[in-house]
Amino acid sequence: MNARLAAGAAALLLTAVLTGCGPSDAGGSNGTPKPTSDETIASPGASDSPTASPSPTATTKGIALPTDCRAILSEDVLSQLGDTPLNDAAFGPSGVGADGTLTCIWADPRADTTRLVTTISKMNRGPALDMLNALVTNEGFACFTPDGGTRCEKTWQNEQYPVTDGRTLFWRDDVLIDTRYSNLAPSGYTSAIIAHLFD
């Protein structure tokens, strides 16, 4: 019963954040989710309470979707990826899609599980709210509000191999960054993409 109440409370918090109903508090030191292995989150003057996501306004500028999987990453992140192949044909369609969505697949076709797949697409606030709420309620994702947007994440043990799998999503200004990974989580990966798109 406590898990059900916690999931409901998290869904209500996420609803308030995405609909711009005002500042929210993720529960202080007991309720703020810890960063996953995907990266360490740090912001100037950060406290236990996340900053509230701003309400969308008519003056919000449209963000162009990127077209280059390497250009969205910092030199540090690229060095962590090393010689991992990018967008090998063995994994199917990647790169820029017909609708402008960018799919980046960092994986070696010879590896059984090590991979990182990021999709950057346009998504309006309503569908984003529904999707992120469903992840909180149904799958136990933790969400918080860094960098002027909403970030949701979860990690779990791979069912077949002794490695960590996970998923990190970040939504802001009608752009969704959705990354799924297995045994490949460079430090600062999502933050590098956010900085490239929004700064």
Rank of each mutant, 00 (worst) to 15 (best):
T101S: 14
P127M: 10
D99S: 12
A107D: 03
T101K: 08
M131W: 08
T113A: 09
T84I: 15
N133V: 09
P127T: 08
L116G: 00
I120G: 00
K122R: 15
G95T: 12
D108R: 04
A89K: 14
M131S: 11
N133T: 10
A134I: 05
G126E: 14
G92F: 09
N133F: 01
G97R: 13
D88Q: 13
V136Y: 00
T113W: 11
D112A: 05
I105A: 01
R110A: 15
L102F: 08
V136G: 03
D130G: 04
A107L: 01
L135M: 13
T137R: 14
T114C: 02
N133C: 03
L116A: 03
K122F: 01
D130E: 11
V136Q: 08
A134K: 14
T103M: 04
T103L: 06
M123F: 04
T119S: 15
R115F: 07
T103W: 04
G92A: 09
A111L: 09
A128L: 07
C104P: 00
L132P: 01
T113N: 02
M123Q: 14
I120W: 00
F91E: 04
P127E: 09
A90T: 13
T84G: 01
A134E: 13
D112M: 07
T118Y: 04
I120L: 11
A89F: 06
P85H: 11
L132C: 08
